[in-house]
Design a protein around this nucleic acid. Structure first.
Length: 570
DNA sequence: ACCCGGTGGGGTGAAAGCTCATAAGCTTT
């Protein structure tokens, strides 16, 4: 079993234990163990099997959890988990994703009404029975119903951190001469519903057999000669694998990459030009002569178009632009030279300044900004004025000593309800790069939120607005405000929009990026890393930027260090 | 549960504010 799956068993059990109101410190130990195991460089399952190794050498794993890991390795579950599952249905975990409900409420709902699924929950709300329970009322019923509706929109979709692991693992595993990923994953969409893989060449036919035999494949939904579908992992992400001849890979890739809207428009164009386009190729209609199929470039060229990068294929003007040879020269990951939003142990990050700097240096960056939280986010141990100023001095000293990369002292400063900054201007003036972010009062009316953000933009020390809409994918909607006014003001004041590359956020999204660019805004793509490995999430942010039609010139952290310093005056 | 440090037991990751309902539970990273 993979580390990630072990971690999942532990953290799900911790959730159930919370519903059962067990000892909070024990619960924390399970959660901590899950985090440590997920990030552990070796296979924990193999360590359990190897008599020469001791899992208790892993920090956070003691006698109790070592026994749990033994049991997981032996039979895929463990006693406490079974006990919890006997007490509460496994679907109760899903209820934790509904905003407004926590472990106590879920326990009560189960005890009083045997509510165990989202459908049950919806019924209880509609029948106005939730309000009869202690500490619950009519308002909560409304809130829960709204949250259910939002949750259902995202049901069955997955964020890119998980999807990318599956793609990378299967690509290596299938063993065909070529494996290409298509679908919304290839278009860089922020969440995916399934994964489409195309295999060709040597080993393509046996790849389907290998696929359904993969140890993490659960339910096989179908398997024929050319296609196999299955759900993978405990999460149940659907993967479709298609085997096809290399001669028609381009047509298949074009077709299965989509989007549907792009393909419809492309086929209409083909018809106008006397062709027909399908997943096997582009054909001249009379006589059905094959015109192009092996590569996407040939197909687009035959239709009089430049090759369109997958991220743009949404039928949002890209076909017209390709016909007029004015597609943007989209930003690429390799052009990124720095990362301007990350955390260390100073607040809620996991690593030190030096460790983050070293990881960034290893990625080939020239500079980073360390931006820990400010004091309002007490939960994250945010910095007050004094600590922020001391930290800036520490960063200056670290740069003098030399880190192999330039580090800017920064802060992710809370934007308070009235739009003022959480720290004084004097303190902010000591820092090189201040990102201002909203972390509270997210449900303000649009007018108040707009005024709040406009005021934040007025602060002379603010360089960027962090995760500007506050959305958390599959969990929380963007808060409402007048984006056009805020973007226009940001452009005027030279404040950057962050494109937050964390796969949980990906904020701004593509339509807002395009809108902001049209209003003259500039951008920073930043990972918001809380751990050195999170720096690698930059690629997801670059995908969003590309979906927003951005070029390197739109993004400040593609600038070399000296030019970036001049731009920011630091 | 773990860890430390000691062979018995104490400490553990940080608080503020909102909502709904009237004391507690949830949210925020």
């Amino acid at each position: 079993m993979e580390n990630r799956e072990i971690a999942r068993l532990l953290s799900e059990t911790a959730d159930l234990m919370e519903i059962a109101a067990e000892d909070p410190f024990r619960i924390r130990s399970y959660r901590n163990a899950a985090t440590v195991i997920e990030g552990y460089p070796e296979s924990v399952a193999e360590m359990v099997r190897d008599p020469a190794r001791k899992v208790t050498d892993i920090p956070g794993i003691g006698k109790g959890l070592a026994a749990v890991l033994e049991e997981i390795q032996a039979r895929g579950s463990f006693e406490r988990r079974d006990e919890m599952l006997a007490k509460y249905p496994p679907t109760a975990l899903e209820l934790l994703k509904i905003q407004g409900l926590g472990p106590k409420s879920i326990a009560r709902l189960w005890e009083h009404y045997r509510v165990s699924t989202i459908d049950d929950l919806e019924r209880v709300c509609r029948e106005e029975k939730l309000r009869l329970l202690p500490r619950m009322g009519a308002k909560l019923e409304e809130k829960v119903l709204r949250s259910i509706a939002y949750y259902r929109q995202g049901a069955g979709r997955f964020t890119l951190n998980f999807a990318s692991e599956v793609v990378e693992e299967l690509t290596a595993y299938l063993g065909a001469e070529s494996v290409s990923v298509a679908g919304s994953y290839r278009r860089g969409k922020e969440t995916v519903g399934d994964i489409d893989l195309l295999v060709t060449g040597e080993g393509a036919e046996t790849a389907l057999e290998r696929f359904v035999a993969h140890p993490r494949v659960g339910e096989v939904l179908g398997k024929g000669r050319n296609k196999a579908s299955a759900r993978i992992g405990l999460e149940g992400l659907q993967v479709d694998v298609r085997a096809l001849p290399a001669e028609s890979l381009g047509a298949a890739l074009q077709y299965f990459t989509g989007s549907k809207e792009h393909n419809v428009a492309l086929r209409q164009r083909a018809l106008r030009l006397g062709y027909t386009l399908n997943e096997y190729g582009l054909f001249r209609m009379a006589g059905e002569t094959l015109v192009a199929a092996a590569s996407e470039e040939e197909i687009y060229a035959a239709l009089g178009l430049d090759w369109i990068p997958p991220e743009l294929r949404e039928n949002q003007g890209e076909i017209e632009a390709a016909g007029e040879h004015r597609l943007p020269d989209l930003v690429q990951l390799a052009q990124v030279r720095g990362d301007l939003h990350m955390h260390t142990r100073e607040s809620d990050g996991r690593a030190t300044l030096e460790e983050m700097a070293e990881a960034a240096r290893a990625l080939g960056y020239e500079y980073i900004a360390i931006t820990d939280h400010s004091k309002s986010l007490a939960m994250a141990n945010g910095l007050d004025e004094r600590r922020a100023v001391d930290f800036a001095a520490r960063v200056r000293e670290a740069n003098r000593q030399g880190l192999g990369i330039h580090v800017f002292s920064g802060l992710e400063c809370d934007i308070r309800r009235d739009g003022s900054m959480d720290l004084t201007d004097d303190a902010l003036a000591e820092l090189d790069f201040v990102v201002a972010s909203v972390h509270s009062y997210m449900s303000l009316e649009s007018v108040e939120m707009t005024d709040r953000l406009l005021r934040a933009l007025e602060n002379p020390h603010v360089r960027a607005i962090g995760h500007p809409t506050g959305r958390v994918l599959l969990h929380r909607e963007a808060f409402s405000f007048d984006f056009e006014r805020v973007a226009a003001a940001a452009a005027k004041r030279g404040v950057l929009f962050e494109i937050n590359a964390s796969p949980e956020r990906l904020d701004l999204d593509a339509p807002l990026i395009r809108q902001a660019k049209a209003l003259g805004a500039r951008f920073a793509i930043s990972t918001d890393a809380h751990h050195p490995k999170h720096l690698a999430n930059m690629r997801f942010g670059v995908s969003m930027a590309r979906r927003g039609w951005l070029e390197a010139a739109d993004i400040v952290n593609t600038l070399p260090l000296d030019r970036f310093r001049v731009l920011c005056g630091i």
